[in-house]
Structures are given as structure tokens and as C-alpha cells.
């Protein structure tokens, strides 16, 4: 096996060039190296101007998502050997504006995430003297899958709907909304339904399914959205058939 592998890295330096170029780097092909290790090697040893995000290096922080050979992946979980001997093309997550090199602007996602109230909403908190909110293992199982989301935004890069319609709330934000909707301590379902049951919310999703394919935590955002659609349709029918129960 070759002792090195080529990285074709997307470079965009707005002060130097009006559009991106690809720059090649030869890095050691080590069996224990992931792509992020190779980028760190480039940054430390070859070209300190290369910009990218990373933090935990263990698939938890969700910072190091990039397009690798056209597919969104966490670079801390993508081993060089699985791409060898061909060159590896590394680009920033698609569908997001590129600030510099592999760094994208994620404000759009953060705004959408905040809009779905990703926290436990209570109409009224019960006094501390009344004790904790009890939750059974079965109730935990209802939402645990969605709580595994690490906000890596790979699902946004994989979603063609988001690429075509940037106003779409997007997979992760809706999956996280479901994480709280299915939490028996939460009472914010109606608030989130108001935000998500419109054209830019759940109804924009056409179930391409790529968001779930690329999710490194098996959250299944596509499934979360389809469940939301069912709940949205049921809510609409309820409002038509039982109008006196409307808020």
C-alpha cells in the first residue's frame, strides 16, 4: 500500500480569489488516521493558512462535518484507508455560504433551531416541594433517538430541498422539535406546531430520505418529519371536527 494519500482541499480565501480553487496536499496514509487527523497534519506541518472547524475528535461536537468525495461526513469518523488509494476531495458542507476554506456560515441553522424552542416548555412549573417530574424508561424511549442529534448539519448538506429552498426549516431542527414534543415533561407541542405546520416547515419535506442516510447518530430526521406531518394532519382534522376544543 502507498505510504501517502492526496487530499484535494477546497480553498476559498476571499481576499485573494473571487471563487474557490482546489489545493492538493500529500499526507501520510496511516491506518489510525481519520481525515481530520490529515487536515490537522496539513495545518501543523504544511500550510497554516488552511481554515476548518473541529473540536472533540470523537463524533460528539458535530463541528467537523465536511463534504468528502461529494458526501457529507464527520471527518473525525472517516478513515483515510477507506478512501485509499484514490485522492480524497474535501469541500465545505454544501448548501451553506462559505466564509473561508472549509468554514461555513451556520447562522441560518442556528436561527431555525431556536425557532422550534429546543427546550422543555412548561405552562407552569410545579413547586420544588412536589418533587421531580417522573419519566419511565418507555417514555424516555419515545424521544431518546431524537435527542442523539449533535447539530452537525450533515442532514442539511444532504437535503436537496434545503439546497433548493433555503427557507425550509430543515431536518435537524424538526427532529429536535420532536425530541421535545415526545418528552412527557414538555407542553410546547402547540407552540412548535405553529412554527412548523406551514409551507417552510414540515410540508416542504418530500421524503428524499438522504438526511437519515447521512446522519452519524441514526437520528432518522426523515422519520421525525413524517411523524410530524401525521400529527399536523391529525391536528388540522381535530380543529375542523372539534372546533370548540381549539385554543
Amino acid at each position: 500500500m502507498a505510504s501517502t494519500i492526496t487530499l484535494e482541499v477546497y480553498r476559498y480565501r476571499p481576499e485573494e480569489e473571487s471563487e474557490p480553487v482546489f489545493q492538493s496536499y500529500e499526507v501520510p496514509l496511516r491506518s489510525d488516521w481519520v481525515i481530520l487527523d490529515a487536515l490537522n497534519h496539513v495545518k501543523d506541518q504544511e500550510d497554516g493558512t488552511l481554515s476548518y472547524r473541529w473540536s472533540c475528535r470523537m463524533g460528539v461536537c458535530g463541528s467537523c462535518g465536511m463534504m468528502v468525495n461529494g458526501k457529507p461526513v464527520l471527518t473525525c469518523a472517516a478513515f483515510l484507508e477507506s478512501y485509499a488509494p484514490d485522492p480524497i476531495r474535501i469541500e465545505p458542507l454544501q448548501h451553506f455560504p462559505v466564509v473561508r476554506d472549509l468554514v461555513t456560515d451556520v447562522d441560518d441553522f442556528l436561527g431555525k433551531l431556536k425557532s422550534v424552542k429546543p427546550w422543555i416548555v412548561r405552562d407552569e412549573e410545579k413547586p420544588v416541594e412536589e418533587g421531580e417530574y417522573i419519566q419511565t424508561p418507555e417514555e424516555l424511549a419515545d424521544f431518546k433517538q431524537y435527542s442523539m442529534c449533535i447539530n452537525c448539519m450533515l442532514c442539511y448538506a444532504a437535503c436537496p430541498v434545503y439546497g433548493l429552498e433555503p427557507d425550509f426549516t430543515g431536518p435537524a431542527a424538526i427532529a429536535i422539535a420532536q425530541r421535545y414534543n415526545f418528552d412527557n415533561r414538555d407542553q410546547g407541542n402547540d407552540d412548535r406546531m405553529d412554527v412548523l405546520s406551514h409551507d417552510d416547515g414540515i410540508w416542504s419535506c418530500t421524503l428524499v430520505g438522504e438526511c437519515s442516510e447521512v446522519c452519524p447518530k441514526d437520528v432518522d430526521p426523515a422519520g421525525a418529519i413524517q411523524r410530524y406531518k401525521l400529527a399536523g394532519a391529525a391536528s388540522w382534522w381535530k380543529s375542523v371536527l372539534l372546533p370548540w376544543q381549539n385554543r
Partner: peptide
């Protein structure tokens, strides 16, 4: 300059590419 470039308002240096119509082929 490439016609596909659509700079983000207020951040003219940010680079954004419009998704092509035939992205699915």
C-alpha cells in the same frame, strides 16, 4: 466571474452556489 456565484447580502465575500436544476442526475 462565475455566473453561479450568489453572494450573501451584507457579507459580500461569502461564497454561495445555487443548486443546479438537474442536481438529481
Amino acid at each position: 466571474m462565475n455566473q453561479n456565484i450568489h453572494h450573501t447580502p451584507h457579507h459580500p465575500k461569502w461564497y454561495r452556489v445555487r443548486k443546479p436544476v438537474f442536481w438529481w442526475v
